[in-house]
Computed example of a mutant assay.
Amino acid sequence: MHDDDDEDRADALFHALADRTRRDILRRVLAGEHSVSTLAASYDMSFTAVQKHIAVLERAGLITRRRSGREVLTSGDIAAVRPIGSLLRGLEDIWRGRVTRIDDLLAETPTRPTSPGRTPLKE
């Protein structure tokens, strides 16, 4: 993710996932479709607050809503979650590359010779 659109998408995804309730809602709707009413009953907050959490997840493209009669049903989009894993793997690759370079530098560093008459410390 390097262009501005990708960066905006990453910002939206991480903002959506920054909240514990939203992560829990996402886990639930990835497992199966739920009505907004059912989801709201699962949390110790107002129906409106849960709707706002759902709206953040929907704007990030992580869930979809559809109307079925008088109910609004939500479901998760696993394909939308995959870019998060890809982005995190990319960051991990950068970190692992840094660790490897540090290991290489340490391996190249010559050991200090001991002074005459002194013995090296034993580990």
Results as ranks from 00 to 15, higher is better:
40 A>C: 00
92 E>Q: 12
110 P>T: 06
104 D>T: 11
5 D>H: 14
51 Q>N: 12
43 Y>E: 00
123 E>I: 09
120 P>C: 03
114 T>I: 14
82 R>K: 13
119 T>E: 12
71 E>N: 07
110 P>F: 06
64 T>L: 00
79 A>L: 02
88 L>A: 13
60 A>W: 03
58 E>A: 04
29 V>K: 06
36 V>G: 01
98 R>F: 14
105 L>H: 07
57 L>N: 14
57 L>M: 07
62 L>I: 00
74 T>K: 01
24 D>H: 15
122 K>T: 07
89 R>P: 01
92 E>P: 09
84 I>D: 06
53 H>D: 08
87 L>E: 09
100 T>P: 02
48 T>S: 06
45 M>F: 05
37 S>A: 15
121 L>T: 11
63 I>T: 15
66 R>M: 00
22 R>P: 01
58 E>H: 05
8 D>V: 02
26 L>V: 03
78 I>D: 11
72 V>T: 14
56 V>I: 08
118 R>F: 13
54 I>K: 00
85 G>H: 08
60 A>R: 12
36 V>M: 09
122 K>M: 13
64 T>A: 07
32 G>M: 09
27 R>N: 14
78 I>T: 12
116 P>A: 09
90 G>W: 00
58 E>N: 08
83 P>I: 04
74 T>I: 07
12 A>K: 10
48 T>A: 10
116 P>D: 04
34 H>Q: 15
54 I>W: 01
47 F>H: 08
32 G>N: 05
95 W>S: 03
34 H>Y: 14
65 R>Y: 00
89 R>T: 11
34 H>R: 15
118 R>S: 11
35 S>Q: 07
112 R>I: 12
115 S>C: 03
111 T>D: 10
66 R>C: 01
102 I>C: 06
120 P>Q: 02
10 A>C: 08
116 P>N: 04
30 L>G: 01
95 W>R: 04
94 I>K: 10
33 E>V: 00
117 G>E: 02
34 H>N: 14
76 G>W: 02
58 E>F: 01
19 D>L: 08
80 A>K: 02
8 D>K: 09
45 M>Q: 07
33 E>W: 04
31 A>W: 13
75 S>P: 03
111 T>K: 09
4 D>Y: 09
23 R>K: 08
